[in-house]
Design a protein around this nucleic acid. Structure first.
Lengths: 221, 221
DNA sequence: ACAATAGTGTCTTTAAGACATTATTCA
DNA sequence: TGAATAATGTCTTAAAGACACTATTGT
């Protein structure tokens, strides 16, 4: 393409999920150099003969390497520099994926889940990438339906509130939360009930795909 | 670097300023193919032998091509695909620059300023890039000090409020605006006065570099 | 009946908006 | 003194938070 040296272009995914009311990050063990054997974010090269965009490359890699498909995916930030990858001057377009736990594989030799508050050492500048993705999630959490992307197709309002609380790192006021979720029309009733609790809870689904709005969803209890 | 074809990597800048209480965009006329003679965002290749990062490349290009230095610069989004640049599969890391009018050159044959509400046809996918940058600015405007980046080193609260009003596209409540700017400690008094108005106005400076916060800065009057 | 969790109602507190009033300068 | 704009004060309204209370199920 270009008649001068160009950067390597890669994509990396910060795949987050909710497990036991904690934010967990999916990590893989690298099989190839550089950093073979180390833990790293799932990622890979953009293939110009195959991918239609950086987002397309990311989706291909999520599918091929992680078995993850059809999830909430958002571009976060592009990291770059001569030293972040020993293979040379590189660009990595970092993405944030929010997935319900049951859409992800079980932990194995090659796939691990770590609490985001207690991460191991990671290859490349992946610690910085994760920090940026978490800033994005926490920053948008209060005025978007992003936290609901961790839930299944249907969920109770209590589950929804827990997801927000984990993302925001604080307890939310119960009645204010429900008031706003309803007033903003974020969810719609399915008519079904979740009967696993003492009193069955109404099940809802997101009325729109994940989006932002301007009112915040309440703070301390 | 890589032993397979890699994308072209470029940076582009959406340089915005405030003139006559309107948002203006800086555009350049392209001298070289592709799109020679067309209007486009200032941009260029990342030089792996010279730049330390994508942000560094952007700063170099702003300095060399636009004579712009030391301004507020934020990465917005990375655009990509096989067709957006006729030279081949390309990646452009789009940036948003907010600049006071007096830090920018005068309009000329090669440099023009357009009201963002009335843009001409542009080269590449630059219309989409501008739309993304404006979304970012307007989205962050209400809960950040970004609009103040359009002002000079010192400014009156009235000027600051006008900047917010232009960015947000709506009038703000005067006393609520001042209350919050003060309560949040966004500015500090310089002790000087702007004597160009009937009653001289106190001059302020930003207390911190542009940042976000959580309370909004008021809506309709 | 009571434990457990879902869901509602309402009072208090705080922030936002409206708007009148006062302040300071110049012509 | 009056026009012009800066700056403040205060009342009203709306949103957020606290928290008690009612509802519905299983055991």
């Amino acid at each position: 393409m270009a008649d001068f040296p160009t950067p390597i272009v890669t994509v990396d995914a910060v795949i987050l999920t909710l497990e036991d009311n904690r934010l967990k990050l999916m990590l893989g063990r690298r099989e190839l150099a550089p950093f073979a054997g180390d833990l790293a974010l799932p990622g890979g090269y953009v293939h110009v003969d195959e991918d239609v965009s950086v987002a397309g490359a990311m989706q291909r890699i999520l599918r091929q390497k992680c078995g993850v498909e059809g999830v909430y995916l958002e571009q976060v930030e592009t990291f770059s520099g001569p030293d972040r990858d020993p293979r040379g001057w590189s660009v990595s377009v970092a993405h944030l994926a929010l997935v319900s736990r049951d859409q992800l594989p079980e932990a194995s030799d090659t796939v691990r889940f770590h609490d985001v508050e207690d991460l191991p050492d990671l290859a490349f500048d992946h610690a910085s990438i994760i920090a940026a993705a978490l800033r994005r999630l926490r920053g948008k959490g209060a005025y978007s339906t992003l936290p609901a992307a961790f839930l299944g197709q249907t969920f109770t309002l209590t589950e929804m509130q827990r997801a927000y609380e984990v993302v925001l790192g604080e307890r939310l006021n119960l009645s204010a939360f429900r008031r706003k979720v309803m007033d903003l029309g974020l969810v719609e009733e399915t008519g079904d009930k979740d009967t696993r609790t003492a009193r069955p809870a109404a099940l809802y689904r997101l009325a729109q795909p994940p989006r932002t709005f301007d009112r915040t969803l309440g703070t301390a209890s």
